[in-house]
Deep mutational scan, measured.
Amino acid sequence: MQRVNMIMAESPGLITICLLGYLLSAECTVFLDHENANKILNRPKRYNSGKLEEFVQGNLERECMEEKCSFEEAREVFENTERTTEFWKQYVDGDQCESNPCLNGGSCKDDINSYECWCPFGFEGKNCELDVTCNIKNGRCEQFCKNSADNKVVCSCTEGYRLAENQKSCEPAVPFPCGRVSVSQTSKLTRAETVFPDVDYVNSTEAETILDNITQSTQSFNDFTRVVGGEDAKPGQFPWQVVLNGKVDAFCGGSIVNEKWIVTAAHCVETGVKITVVAGEHNIEETEHTEQKRNVIRIIPHHNYNAAINKYNHDIALLELDEPLVLNSYVTPICIADKEYTNIFLKFGSGYVSGWGRVFHKGRSALVLQYLRVPLVDRATCLRSTKFTIYNNMFCAGFHEGGRDSCQGDSGGPHVTEVEGTSFLTGIISWGEECAMKGKYGIYTKVSRYVNWIKEKTKLT
């Protein structure tokens, strides 16, 4: 034993070699072989497995989906700052455009905790909710729209109204504003409101030439003092309507412009014939205590009207009353817009006519005020429907199939267009061939041609 100890002390290297040989010859039971080890760690190889990531292109799944990435790591994937920024906006807080917040056709661009709407022409605001041009839906104005110097929408209202708090709607500024039905039992019968379409306001006024200088022999019209197929109006439903009495009662109609003036057809009036105007009328054979009678003290036909040349060209006249009318729910003026808007309103496509005229061709006159909704007829169809001249200051309205029309005794009465609950004068009943005849239409004086003249002559002093 002493000898062994001496050998170990003198030859430590020998001992180490012996131990190493023993270990190498022993069977290893701690580690699995290569094949079995792979069965336990069965993990798919990654895209760049075996390579240094710093030297390969980034992978979106590896960089940002398996674990949260930084902007720089995302930049490695896209290799483009702009594309990385677009991805980053949604990656950080989701897609803010998912709810489609942009209105009126706006395009949404996502941002971090926010979004941006790219608005089409005519709109602005956070969600493109603000109209900035009158060309689109009248700028959301209830009545009139004008573009300011910086191309912003400025709404306005006709006389007797003021802008509401929203700067879009119009509200009454006087007790009985024009064009409004205020009798409670008839307010439910107000005709369907007309909503502004998209309009090209630059070209809204037709490029028409008034044929002022045409000389033409007097034409022989049949029954051209021209509501057939209409309905009984309720008291106060058309408070701007008046009836004219002269040699015979209810020979023509008219509309209240203001307390002192009536507008009617020029062919209705004769110099030297006494005319009485009755406002607030409903049943011409009954006294309903809503009527107001006034005498006409002055007749002003349009300066281009000449019955000797043509009885229905420039067929418009103004009547001055001896005493002002007292405005109330049964006696209310009709609204008159400017030339541009009167023309736009007419193009809405349908209007209402009213009167006490004959209820059928050569038949009896109506006792109760009649009204009828009539569609506008395109000019080409209008011209083809008659052998008589249709001037540019006239328009056609009615039904091709016949059966409904204005008729004798309705002449001078109103053709009105309702705009968001307020009625505007767009025409004056003038003439036609018979009444409600198939293929024939009622012919009306186009008020847009005469609004400046009306307003100039009827100013209240």
Results as ranks from 00 to 15, higher is better:
E286Q: 12
Q237F: 10
S182K: 05
A192S: 12
H314A: 06
H400T: 13
N113C: 03
L163P: 04
S184H: 11
W453R: 00
I256V: 06
K455Y: 04
I256L: 04
V243Y: 15
C145W: 02
T29Y: 12
K109H: 10
V377D: 01
E159L: 06
H282L: 12
D150W: 07
E456N: 11
Y201H: 10
R364A: 14
M394L: 08
Q90V: 11
T186H: 11
A149M: 11
P235H: 07
S99P: 10
E86A: 15
P197D: 08
K293V: 15
N203G: 11
L376I: 12
N304Q: 12
Y201I: 14
Q167T: 09
V359L: 12
G122N: 05
S365N: 14
Q167V: 05
Q96A: 15
G230E: 12
S411E: 11
F395L: 01
D249I: 06
S350M: 08
Y391S: 13
L163V: 08
E124C: 02
C134R: 03
F345N: 01
E98Q: 11
L327H: 03
E53F: 06
F395C: 02
M437A: 13
N48S: 14
T133S: 14
M8F: 11
C170N: 01
Q370W: 03
N166H: 02
R404T: 14
E142G: 08
Q2E: 09
F395E: 00
I344D: 12
T16W: 13
E165I: 08
L383K: 14
K274Q: 09
G272Y: 06
N313M: 08
G427M: 00
K45R: 11
D405S: 15
V77G: 15
P301R: 10
S204H: 09
S385Y: 15
L460R: 12
C97Y: 00
T190R: 09
C28Y: 02
H400M: 12
L24T: 06
S220G: 09
T85N: 08
E340Y: 14
V195N: 14
N452K: 10
T342D: 03
Y341F: 13
A37I: 11
N48D: 15
V269Q: 03
T81K: 14
E129D: 07
A207S: 11
L367K: 14
S255M: 04
V269A: 10
L163H: 01
N59P: 06
F71Q: 15
N5D: 07
I390V: 14
F121S: 05
C396F: 02
T381Y: 08
N135G: 14
T264S: 06
E434L: 12
I334T: 02
G421V: 03
A173P: 01
G403F: 09
C268A: 01
T342W: 01
R294T: 01
N38E: 13
S107P: 01
G409Q: 10
K89P: 15
D223A: 12
V377Y: 02
E323Y: 07
V353H: 04
L346V: 06
V183T: 09
E76R: 15
Y371F: 13
F78I: 15
T381F: 12
C97T: 01
R404M: 05
F121M: 06
F348G: 13
T381D: 13
A233I: 07
A436G: 13
R364P: 08
K247Y: 05
G13T: 12
L14H: 03
W118R: 01
Q57G: 11
E142H: 06
A207Q: 10
Q90I: 10
G179P: 00
K152S: 13
I297G: 04
I299E: 05
K457F: 07
P324W: 02
A366P: 14
D95Q: 09
S107L: 06
E433M: 07
I428W: 04
S220N: 12
N42S: 10
G50E: 12
R43K: 12
C396I: 02
D405V: 05
H34Y: 12
S354M: 12
Y305A: 02
E420M: 13
G409N: 13
G398I: 03
I299Q: 07
C117P: 00
G229R: 14
T417F: 02
V242H: 00
T81E: 12
D111E: 06
T186L: 05
G229I: 13
E418K: 09
N127C: 02
F399N: 11
A9P: 11
A279E: 00
E10F: 13
V228S: 11
T85D: 10
P301D: 03
E433F: 09
E456D: 13
P12N: 11
Q237M: 09
V263L: 11
L425H: 01
G160L: 02
D33S: 12
C157T: 00
E54S: 10
E285G: 06
I15F: 07
V181W: 07
S25H: 04
H34T: 15
D405Q: 15
C407T: 04
A265N: 03
R191Q: 07
K126N: 10
I15Y: 06
A266W: 02
E76K: 13
L189G: 10
L163F: 01
N304K: 08
